[in-house]
Simulated scan of single mutants.
Amino acid sequence: MLYLVPTPIGNLGDISIRSKEILADADLILAEDTRNTGKLLKLLEIENKMWSFHAHNEHHQVEKVIELLESESTIAMVTDAGTPGISDPGYLLVKACHEAEIQVSCLPGATAFVPALASSGIPSDKFFFEGFLPQKKGRQTRWQELSELTYTIVLYESPYRVLKCLQEIVHHCGAERIVCVVREISKIHEEVKRGLASDILEDFKNRPSIKGEFVIIVAGK
């Protein structure tokens, strides 16, 4: 069996008891970055074998992992933070498991967009998860499509492109579109900032530095 094991996106206390048990009992742990996962395992007092499995090598690793799973190994997959397969490596391996009739189980747990959406005060009965926008080619076209959606949009963004993203929201969606920027979820400096797109943009323009991982919630048209 392949287990997809969510890991904390901020506070390490968010790890579940079941996640710890599976990480301890698995025959192998696939880690996006073995250094980051090694720190988590050390904190949890777990010693286990790890393989590197990330966006740059997953195409080459999938076949090896499937062979191990077919030999009745139990494998746990983790990413640096959050749930594997959600804007992180995992999709290719899960697809290959289904094709090989290998059982897959995803534990419930941390993912950034759910707490961001819930705390935004923006309608969540229907929403579109965009994740990371294209960095260059196709970005403007994508914004033109997203700006016409009548339900909530969920974006992921890095601190280096937050201002650009907020400027694009104002340009494509309008200055009065309601936006909520959620930063550093479950960490010490967690922040939820909600308001008109133009006001949120001005707030971040006036900050001396912009740090953290961001989820941006945009109200529908």
Rank of each mutant, 00 (worst) to 15 (best):
L40R: 07
V78T: 13
L23F: 04
E202N: 13
Y156W: 12
N36R: 14
S209Q: 11
G195K: 04
P89N: 06
I66T: 08
F204K: 05
I66C: 11
E202L: 13
K49F: 00
K39P: 06
L4F: 07
E21H: 04
L68I: 02
L146T: 11
I86E: 05
L69Q: 02
V114K: 09
L163V: 13
D88W: 06
V181A: 15
T150A: 12
S186N: 04
P208S: 13
L149Y: 10
L12P: 00
V104Y: 04
R183T: 08
T74C: 12
K193H: 14
L2H: 08
H56W: 00
W143L: 07
V5D: 11
R161S: 11
I17Q: 11
G195Q: 02
A81C: 07
C173R: 00
R183G: 00
K136H: 10
G90L: 03
H189R: 13
S124I: 04
L92A: 15
C97A: 01
S52K: 01
E168P: 05
S147G: 08
I122R: 04
E168K: 02
T37R: 06
V154P: 03
L155T: 06
I216H: 14
A24M: 03
Y151F: 15
Q135L: 14
S198F: 10
S105H: 12
V5Q: 01
K136M: 07
N11D: 10
K221D: 09
I216M: 14
G13T: 03
R142Y: 02
I153W: 05
L133R: 05
I9Y: 11
S120M: 14
S186D: 04
L12M: 08
P6S: 01
L92K: 15
E145R: 09
C180M: 06
L92T: 11
A197G: 10
N48L: 01
K193V: 15
L133Q: 00
K211R: 15
D80W: 03
E45C: 10
I86G: 10
S198P: 03
Q61L: 12
I185K: 04
H189F: 15
I178N: 13
